[in-house]
């Protein structure tokens, strides 16, 4: 739709601007300040780009970054198709639909550290239902010693935790498809697959972009769940970016390097989200143009 030019709209945005700037801009500026100095207690001196050089060449951080990307792409590759699948399975109306919705949404509303605790209790070899059962079946399952076990467990935990979000977004997208499309598909004798491919999937593109964006963001900043479940171990096999950062900043008090690392982290996020943003905006523009051409729909 054609928007009206109206500069006073800035006033409507102002409160948002002030509140978010307070929480975002001041800390960000401080982080930039930190990143160029060596800070020891109350004294600090300027070191220029030293911390950036060190951080970019730090093999530990490089591997944390790679691990982070590997993790994010793995869970996206699993959760997006799984979420679509579950959305297709969910009942469409009636009390069953409500019940399934509530049950499926549950993991989303569990505090992130509690998610870690739940899975810790669930997967421990001695007292955990899953851990105990797997050991009984003869596999020596151990997330504190075996890196593969730890990885798989964290990925399954993340699937448990976040697939509901994808499923709910898709469910909502599917519900918005008018019944007539399915009638038309039956009349045209489209197979189930063709119905999915040509009716449901195209209508899901919008919500899927949102799902991918949200999932990418949150997987990229995952912290509390693996921290509680594995503590980043064994070794550093499940230490993701946020945790490396927190360790540097809080445990080791390396303010300068952790600030430099934060900025690099932030620039990555910025680039990725810009690509998503441009994609979403172009989709909306295309949709608007299409409605302009296609009349009411």
């Amino acid at each position: 739709m054609d928007k009206r030019e109206y500069q006073w709209a800035w006033l409507m945005v102002l409160p948002v601007l002030v509140l978010v700037a307070f929480s975002a801009v001041i800390p960000l500026m401080t982080v930039v300040n930190y990143s160029l100095q060596d800070i020891l207690g109350r004294s600090s001196f300027f070191v220029g780009s030293e911390w950036f050089k060190e951080t970019l060449n730090n093999p530990r951080l490089q591997s944390a970054l790679l691990r982070q990307f590997a993790f994010s792409f793995t869970i996206l590759a699993i959760q997006i198709p799984l979420g679509i699948g579950i959305a297709l399975l969910m009942p469409k109306r009636g009390w069953q639909a409500s019940a399934v919705l509530i049950l499926i949404t549950m993991p989303l509303l569990v505090p992130w550290n509690v998610v870690g605790s739940i899975w810790q209790i669930f997967t421990r070899g001695d007292i955990g239902l899953a851990g105990f059962t797997i050991r009984e079946l003869g596999y020596d399952y151990n997330i504190t010693a075996n890196a593969v076990d730890a990885w798989v467990t964290i990925i399954i935990m993340d699937i448990w935790h976040w697939t509901p979000l994808v499923a709910l977004l898709c469910y909502s997208g599917l519900r918005s498809i008018p019944e007539a499309y399915f009638q038309a598909a039956r009349i045209d004798r489209a197979s189930k697959w063709a119905t999915f491919r040509y009716i449901q999937l195209p209508k899901l593109t919008n919500v899927l972009v949102i799902a991918v964006l949200l999932r990418f963001m949150h997987s990229f900043m995952i912290y509390a769940e693996p921290f509680v479940l594995t503590g980043g171990g064994p070794g550093s096999s499940t230490t993701f970016l946020s945790q490396s950062l927190a360790t540097m900043a809080i445990a080791q008090q390396d303010l300068g390097p952790s600030a430099a690392f934060s900025i690099i982290y932030f620039l990555i996020i910025l680039a990725v989200s810009y690509v998503f943003y441009v994609t979403i905006m172009n989709m909306q523009k295309e949709k608007a143009a299409q409605q302009g051409a296609g009349g009411a729909e």
Partner: peptide, 17 residues
Amino acid sequence: TEERNIGQVFQFPVVYD
């Protein structure tokens, strides 16, 4: 519906986008 071999045109255009 699929066995009756009919065509149907709905209130709003139903096309495969």
